[in-house]
């Protein structure tokens, strides 16, 4: 019975879709980590009482972050169609999903980075200043390393959100397991494809969570 049940699935398509999902997620996580960290550091440093205290810059950055964080992802994809087409010449395929994924997730991650940085002991920053550290040295050698466990657990949460975003991106032509489940599964009433695609997405999420947890535990010496 199991054999006939699985016969309806085109495994080749399934693997292609899995790789597409992995590709979108990993690239998006990496880019989100980079962009979100930069934004988060900017938010933190320009805040009141910090090294680059600057109200206009902080307010504008915070506003941009809040706006992009608040737009529902499915709408963000549609809004970004002209931008994506301009950037990549197409809005179909896994690569075309990337701009929306990154722009959707980076502001969310930026807030997590900001919260993580705020937890860094102000006394440690003062001690570094007393040692004659430059601002760049403080960011690179104090702020980021001291906040690293928060940054890692933050990117884990964001990464899991990104996997579910890839599924949504799939529905509007982005490829990957979401696209497969929707087109081959839902539209052709092939529930087995939907089921297998869901299981594969869950496996990806579990692995991601596990890596994040182990990594965080290993570097957290507090």
């Amino acid at each position: 019975m199991l054999n006939t049940w699985m016969e309806e699935i085109n495994w080749e398509n399934m693997w292609v879709a899995t790789w597409e999902t992995l590709f979108m997620s990993l690239i998006a996580v990496a880019a989100t980590f980079l962009l979100g960290t930069i934004l988060g550091v900017l938010l933190y440093l320009t805040d009141k009482g910090n090294m680059w205290e600057n109200k206009p810059v902080h307010t504008v950055t915070a506003a941009v972050v809040n706006i992009f964080r608040s737009i529902p992802f499915i709408i963000l994809i549609i809004l970004l169609i002209p931008f994506t087409t301009f950037l990549l010449g197409t809005m179909l395929g896994p690569s075309a999903a990337l701009p929306a994924l990154i722009i959707g997730a980076a502001p969310f991650y930026a807030r997590l980075v900001e919260i993580g940085l705020r937890e860094v002991d102000k006394g440690v920053i003062e001690a570094s200043q007393a040692m004659g550290a430059s601002q760049w040295q403080i960011i690179q050698k104090v702020l980021l390393p001291e906040a690293l466990p928060s940054l890692i657990s933050g990117i884990t949460v964001t990464g899991i959100t990104l996997v579910s975003y890839t599924a949504m991106a799939g529905v509007v032509g982005g490829g990957g397991l979401g696209n497969l489940a929707y087109q081959e599964g839902f539209q052709r009433s092939n529930n087995e494809v939907v089921f297998v695609a869901t299981v594969l997405i869950l496996v990806i999420v579990f692995i991601l969570q596990w890596i994040g947890d182990v990594w965080t535990r290993q570097i957290d010496k507090r």
């Binding site: 440690v124 001690a127 007393a130 040692m131 004659g132 550290a133 001291e146 010496k221 507090r222």
Partner: peptide, 21 residues
């Protein structure tokens, strides 16, 4: 100023060590 600070050591009440190191 940063060079001058390198010649002035400072010890704190709450130690202010980097826990990640």
């Amino acid at each position: 100023l940063r060079s001058a600070r390198q010649e002035i050591g400072m010890v704190f009440q709450h130690f202010n060590l980097l826990w990640s190191r």
